[in-house]
Design a protein around this nucleic acid. Structure first.
Lengths: 207, 207
DNA sequence: CGCCAGTACTGTACCGTCCAGTTCCGATCG
DNA sequence: CGATCGGAACTGGACGGTACAGTACTGGCG
């Protein structure tokens, strides 16, 4: 997406294929996606697809792992927001809004659905996603909570547990609603309300 | 499953097909399931399958909606446990354990994965499941919370919000872990710990 | 006679391979 | 510095083999 114009023909084709495959897999699922469609959308011959990726399976796993790195932005946002916090209510609210905005995006939800759907066929993909994405966000949040507790701004024994409860109160409802009701979305005002309510309850339990 | 031996041969065949289809869909997903496999597992000819269900699509939606009624047991368990409550900490703990035991069963999780995976192809199925299953459990829990608040055993303005937060703290972590890590499971002691921690935090926020 | 199992059949879709011809890239040479 | 060249990468299409949805037909059982 950036100035990767200079990356060589081979790398460019590979990137095209990965992007097209991501779109096709997200739209049709693993079984429903056809390699012909991937090749067509990538504007590439099928031979080239099979030169870069031996299998449909390997193409799938490479697509997911290539997309997994995007969680790093989220963890950085956590640390940046909370470590500079002085008013926990306000800064937790901002963090909660950041989470909702990042995790309820349609493409993120479709990726989530895809990984969940194929968790049986690709156990490694699912486990990696859980450990590298889900858990690492929790770890980061927990260590920030621990620092806030050290500064007397939160009151908690088990920062990891507090992080789990924070995420649960914030995300359980909207994530489930959007997972089951495919094309839905939330208005900004509703997201504000969700974030505010979760933070208020969290501060009653852990403030 | 019970003593439905006398239900007519047509209805019996239909039941056989539905049960077999549920197993096949749960194991292979919608696209991966084959009608031949369903017929074979039901010990029925393919012609009979198509006599009862016009389509693969219709068979799928009928399978899901036929399974959806099982949530009623859960809602009854909520009301029975909480409306007789005198010690909220203890009874909420029992309820939390009931939820975990019911929702983390492997077949329930596979059904959940299946519906989520096909939420794009079958939007009605996903929405129905969310409204009839998910929301009705929340509604029941919320009205029980309201009664508890009326008796002075809980302190809350918005019972629905409290129910959402209760479920979120309890279920977010284990459900997600098992959705992403296909074949995992929890030991009983871990479930006890999860339930206890969620109830303790909930009572700090809403006690 | 009516219903159903078993099976064969049609049409389609797709994975992965193969081949013949073309384009791109980097290096070498005039 | 620009023309040339060899090889790698790519295209486009065709093909074998397989799997599956849905239909049709035949024989057997109550």
């Amino acid at each position: 997406m950036t100035a990767d114009v200079e990356e060589g023909r081979t790398a460019r084709k590979r990137r095209q294929i990965l992007d097209a495959a991501r779109a096709v897999f997200l739209r049709n699922g693993y079984v429903g996606a056809s390699m012909d469609e991937v090749a067509a959308l990538a504007a590439v011959s099928k031979q080239t697809v099979y030169k870069h990726f031996t299998d449909k399976e390997q193409l799938f796993t490479d697509v997911i792992t290539a997309t997994a790195g995007e969680f790093d932005d989220l963890t950085r946002a956590i640390a940046a927001t909370l470590d500079a916090a002085d008013d926990p209510a306000k800064d937790l609210g901002r963090l909660a809004r950041t989470f909702l905005g990042a995790l309820l995006r349609p493409d993120v939800l479709r990726l989530r659905r895809l990984i969940i759907a194929e968790a049986d066929r690709f156990p490694d993909v699912g486990r990696t996603w859980y450990e590298e994405g889900f858990q690492s966000v929790l770890d980061t949040l927990a260590s920030c909570f621990a620092r806030l507790a050290g500064r007397g701004l939160l009151r908690l024994d088990d920062p990891r547990l507090a992080a789990e409860h924070f995420m649960g109160m914030l995300l359980w409802i909207p994530v489930n609603r959007l997972m089951f009701c495919g094309g839905g979305s939330y208005a900004e005002a509703e997201l504000d309300r969700l974030a505010e309510a979760a933070v208020a309850a969290f501060l009653r339990a852990y403030g």
